[in-house]
């Protein structure tokens, strides 16, 4: 009888057990994988789709060096979302938090661990973050986050060769944009065009980035980052 009760208890509390056991461990593994990348350089093709903004498809080069050095370089105009810019878990989770393992879920063809991140302090810029971490390669497949200043955003990453290159080949970022940040004249025009957004405080945007020609761990000099850190 006692054995039956114990097994039932184990089944019922399965989620609680996995929370304590796995979430921090999975994030740690993901961080370890990313820490293996000391620096990288990558060419990007960026497409921005926002209702109040018409931007041509742009090309830029992103330089990254651990722990948080970033440089964006382009011959012409380019814009890149600040959120999830470098895929660094340490940068994305740069606040005290509690991590909870939720479940396993498929993202595309990959099995992922779904982890919810809740900040410990009210002062954190993030309210809630959900991570989908590839269970085989310990890389980030998807992130969904609600922030205080930038609203909601979701990044879905695909990898061309995850076994060898732990950095994505495409990133699709969808986000909400606070309409109050847009100048009134443009806001009125957009609302005229889109009646369904008339009573909303935010509008949606999408940025698609294609990454090519990764150059990883080639020893980027610190001088490179002097201007645009």
């Amino acid at each position: 009888m006692f054995r039956i009760l114990l097994i039932a208890l184990l089944f019922l509390s399965n989620d609680a057990f996995t929370q304590d056991k796995d979430a921090d461990e999975i994030i740690k593994k993901m961080q370890t994988v990313f820490d293996g990348i000391k620096d990288y350089k990558v060419d990007m093709t960026i497409s921005v789709d926002m209702s109040f903004l018409k931007v041509p498809k742009s090309k830029a080069t992103l330089y990254f060096k651990q722990p948080d050095k970033v440089k964006l370089d382009s011959k012409g105009f380019a814009m890149l979302p600040k959120e999830g810019l470098t895929f660094s878990p340490g940068k994305m989770l740069d606040f005290a938090y509690s991590a909870f393992y939720i479940k396993e879920e498929k993202v595309g063809e990959s099995n992922t661990h779904v982890i919810k991140i809740i900040p410990d302090a009210d002062s954190a810029r993030v309210l809630l973050t959900t991570l989908w971490v590839d269970s085989k390669f310990n890389i980030l497949r998807k992130i969904k986050s609600t922030t205080k200043s930038a609203g909601e955003f979701e990044i879905e990453l695909t990898y061309a060769d995850p076994a060898n290159i732990k950095l994505p080949s495409t990133a699709e970022l969808t986000f909400t944009f606070d309409q109050n940040k847009i100048p009134a004249r443009i806001r009125e025009e957009i609302q005229k065009e889109s009646k369904d957004q008339k009573n909303q405080n935010s509008m949606n945007g999408k940025v698609t980035i294609r990454y090519e020609n990764y150059s990883i761990n080639k020893g980027l000099p610190d001088d490179l980052f002097k201007e645009d850190q």
Partner: peptide, 13 residues
């Protein structure tokens, strides 16, 4: 200014 809060912008406009 509407974009610079959320985006990293480069280029000579």
């Amino acid at each position: 200014r509407a974009l610079k809060g959320s985006f990293l912008v480069v280029g000579n406009l």
